[in-house]
């Protein structure tokens, strides 16, 4: 009798635990519950923006604090025919177009970018997966480009179109104007005092310190100014956001 009840109790417990996990998985798929889970992102964004200084600088480290290696992640080589040709030519004809809601659409070559006032920063790269690496990034502050092209009324987001693909989807990311005009937001062409390697986004990648790694778009070839995230991709503001439920707000 007691054996039966013990077995019953144990199987109830196992069923209960299994039921909880299955229940959570069902909630994970339920549209109404997903709305609650996705509302958490809005709350975190609102809370952090309200509580913290929008111009606060990410910590900058000393040269000896750097990681021995800067781990690459995501695309390590776009390997398209077009990219391979650019790579073979040392990115001499690579252009970064700046267009959309700007007064003067422009296109910047790498030498042109390098001729503008540069900023170097030794910062920590935090991947959404959990790891961190510290490296020195050198590049052109994005706000120099936006000051030259000028923003039209209604400009709210900056889109970074990239040369790499995940399956048939081109990588892209978006940031708002708070981050676009932040002094540490740079188009980096140097890593640890050397030209940016292919695996880290050559010839130019975005550094948007205060955000997780997936915001830092690599292989940037077009910068578009838009008024609404709905205008690009599937409307959630990035490849990972569109296809894999990642938060648009990557500050947490």
């Amino acid at each position: 009798m007691s054996l039966v009840t013990r077995r019953a109790a144990l199987s109830t417990l196992a069923l209960g635990a299994g039921g909880l996990v299955a229940g959570c998985d069902r909630l994970n798929e339920s549209p109404a519950f997903r709305k609650i889970l996705f509302a958490g992102e809005e709350m975190n964004l609102g809370f952090q923006r309200a509580l913290t200084d929008r111009d606060a600088l990410a910590r900058e480290y000393a040269p000896e604090d750097r990681s021995p290696t800067m781990r690459p992640n995501g695309t390590r080589d776009p390997a398209t025919a077009r990219y391979n040709a650019h790579r073979a030519a040392g990115f001499a004809t690579w252009r970064i177009a700046v267009d959309g809601l700007v007064h003067r659409p422009m296109s910047f070559s790498i030498p042109h970018l390098r001729s503008l006032p540069a900023r170097a920063q030794i910062t920590r790269h935090d991947c959404v997966e959990g790891w961190s690496a510290i490296a020195k990034w050198t590049g052109t502050p994005l706000r120099h480009l936006l000051d030259v092209t000028g923003l039209k009324d209604g400009a709210r987001f900056i889109v970074f179109q990239c040369a790499d693909y995940f399956g048939s989807n081109r990588y892209y990311e978006t940031i708002d104007l708070i981050d676009a005009f932040h002094p540490q937001t740079i188009l980096a062409w140097g890593l640890n005092d050397r030209p940016l390697p292919v695996e880290n986004g050559a010839p130019v990648r975005l550094r948007v310190e205060r955000h997780l790694g997936y915001k830092h778009a690599k292989y940037v070839e077009r910068i578009q100014v838009i008024d609404d995230l709905a205008r690009v991709g599937l409307g959630r503001g990035g490849f990972w956001e569109d296809h894999h439920d990642y938060d648009w707000y990557a500050g947490i």
Binding site: Q48, L51, T52, D53, A56, L57, A58, R59, R124, D126, G130, E209, R210, H211, L212, G251, I252
Partner: peptide, 13 residues
């Protein structure tokens, strides 16, 4: 672990 909080409140680090 939030990079934005680290920028705003570096004492956390």
């Amino acid at each position: 672990m939030s990079p934005n909080m680290d920028a705003a409140w570096p004492w956390l680090l």
